[in-house]
Design a protein around this nucleic acid. Structure first.
Lengths: 209, 209
DNA sequence: CCCCTAATGGGACTCCCGTTCCGTTAGGAT
DNA sequence: ATCCTAACGGAACGGGAGTCCCATTAGGGG
């Protein structure tokens, strides 16, 4: 126990400089590629080190486990936020959101990445929290289109905006899990329409029950 | 315990007699316990063999991989079907379904088992198909309460009954994945109410789009 | 009741993941 | 420009998961 490499208790001695940042970026990109190709269960830290042209020891020391690496990747992904649409119509905005989710999940690369990340989140508590943080960001980005609809009088005043946004994604994720049918635009449009109809009927009023 | 003497689900059972069936039942029960305790990623076939009081070699030979074992477990689970309610009211039936799903996912044992099984399905194509078969069974059990509502004139004639049933479960599974909030009865009731409202509005008409 | 063989079980072997040790490199502060 | 040390990288080590071999057990047909 001579030198503790990853000790957070010594704040002044952190060195987040050029090389460290470069290594992190290379490893995260390599991890993304590996997740897409082999899924989370087939993740091999040695393979990732080779792809990133970095020593195996470095990967094991800095992240320690596959779940911790994915958690870090999720933190990185959460910071890249996509701007939402502003069509001025609730139906249009929800449909745009649904199609964005559908296109993401149906895309070979993005879809595989999300499935792998979901698996990782199911395997570790910290990774699960990182995934929840990612979704909080995404939901917060789209929630305003619901609150604006409330202000226009299209929806009940006490509508739970984040819940409506989640209601758009939910059937798409569930469909991916339970059926082999492809996630097409029709499915996306139906998800958006169902969420809108339920919201108009007051199913998402935050008065709870 | 179900000692099925003529079980077609086990591959290569030329001799499906007493011992073989006994071993299968013991291993599946042990696998269930192990999945609940350690999750899919922590699954160890050697540990399962010990729990089942069976040789390691037997488990490796008959199932070969953790995903194949989970697929067999899912086949077994699909055969135990729970009867649905018959309240005569669409709202009541959907709410009963939502609460059944909610109670299952919120239960420490059942919930952990489902999460583990979902992970396994994400890791292997055959296991995914076994999981889809399981959900087809569950959905088919509850779909009649929607078709009966259609016949009573409560819903549009071309309503896609299985889609309505899936719409009840979807938000509960999505909530489990993306938030840390507990799955309570309020969430179940809201899921049922939203699905019903969307169905009444014609969002699940099979006319497609 | 007896025999044949499918199925099981123990133990040794192999391979690879993760760890540890220690020398080398490169930030960044002075 | 120089030094200090955090961070990196190669190499050897240990342990455990999965495989192989062969002796043993027990269905179930005759």
């Amino acid at each position: 126990m001579t030198t503790d490499p990853a000790d957070p208790s010594t704040p002044g001695t952190v060195r987040p400089g050029g090389r460290t940042a470069r290594v992190r970026a290379a490893v995260l990109r390599a991890a993304e590629d590996a997740l897409v190709e082999h899924g989370f269960s087939g993740l091999d830290l040695g393979d990732i080190a080779q792809r990133a042209e970095v020593g195996r020891t470095t990967v094991y020391r800095r992240w320690g486990s596959t779940t911790a690496l994915v958690a870090d990747l999720l933190t990185d992904m959460a910071e890249q936020s996509l701007p939402r649409t502003h069509s001025g119509s609730l139906a249009e905005d929800l449909r745009a959101n649904a199609r964005l989710v559908q296109r993401t999940l149906a895309d070979p690369r993005q879809g595989a990445l999300f499935r792998a990340v979901i698996v990782a989140a199911h395997c570790d508590a910290d990774t699960a929290e990182a995934l929840r943080h990612f979704y909080r960001r995404r939901v917060a980005e789209w929630a305003p289109c619901v609150t604006e609809a409330v202000e226009r009088g299209e929806l009940p005043p006490d509508t739970d905006a984040p819940e409506v946004v989640r209601a758009v994604s939910a059937p798409l994720y569930y469909r991916m899990l339970t059926t082999a049918e492809p996630l097409d635009e029709a499915a996306a449009d139906r998800a958006a329409a169902a969420a809108e109809a339920a919201a108009r009927a007051g199913a998402y009023r935050s008065g709870r029950a």
